[in-house]
Design a protein around this nucleic acid. Structure first.
Lengths: 140, 140
DNA sequence: GGACACCTTCCCAACATGGGAAGGTCAAGG
DNA sequence: CCTTGACCTTCCCATGTTGGGAAGGTGTCC
């Protein structure tokens, strides 16, 4: 299987497959006489694993660890679970951060007339750096 | 005021102030004979505006637009409000995406024993690419 | 043998921020 | 007057993930 077919079968672009190989996430694929990379069914499985992990937001670094666990038949599932839960915490922290931003902007937008006059509580807040106003919704 | 003082007063690092100048977000600061940048109170206000906008998640590109509106005394507040609400939508889309990931991972982690045995529904899901299982919680 | 689709490597781009090197400047104090 | 330490300058590089595109080689079909 050439890289293009492996890409189509796994959902990982050829560009990314080469990149993953270059950073050591994948072991170097065997080459044809002309230098074309060759992939087998197992490799596509690995690529799908990576693709799914990316879709779930894992970093390539974390994925490297997950791949190691996946390949290790003596792994403890506790390790995997711990990685998953640690990632959930990261996600939830990010979510909370974004929600705080959205909440503040919602408050500010609600206070803004949104007509053709220049007065604008949103710009006022930005100019004040978000300080010293009744409606100041602080981002931690 | 030197760049270090402006940085301390605004919460924007000196490094970033120079960067913002280099990309045209800030107009070039006047220089002393020795080439040191000089800042006045107005500049610190602008920097605080930028800092607050970044804290609310606006891109530098969006901030450029916000600064233009801020400086334009004939602006319509509707324009500002529209930018704010558009950004809220972006934030909420990102939040929904992260929540879907977290939800899926939570489900998977719940199904995982988390002991010293190797069986692990999390790895199974990753290997399957998230397909074909009762608990498959699809990320769109 | 030509056309076209594929492969290769290499460089550059985005996004925002920071690290660090090499060198110049300024103020305080011996 | 000269040193010291804290500041400033510019320049290059790194992060993390993905993609675009150029220049050139390969493989296959007609």
């Amino acid at each position: 299987m050439n890289i293009g077919e492996a890409a189509a079968a796994s959902g990982v672009s050829a560009k990314m497959i080469r990149h993953y190989e270059s950073i050591g996430l994948l072991t170097a694929a065997p080459r044809s006489a002309a230098g074309y990379r060759h992939y087998a069914g197992r490799d596509v499985e690995t690529l799908r694993f990576i693709r799914r992990s990316r879709d779930l937001g894992f970093s390539l670094d974390a994925i490297s660890g997950l791949l190691d666990l996946w390949r290790d038949r003596r792994r403890a599932s506790a390790e995997v679970k711990q990685m998953a839960l640690a990632h959930v915490e990261t996600l939830e922290a990010k979510i909370a951060e974004l929600q705080a931003m959205a909440r503040t902007l919602h408050h500010l937008a609600d206070a803004c007339h949104g007509d053709d006059r220049p007065d604008c509580p949103i710009l006022d807040d930005l100019a004040r750096g978000g300080q010293d106003e009744a409606c100041a919704c602080h981002i931690e």
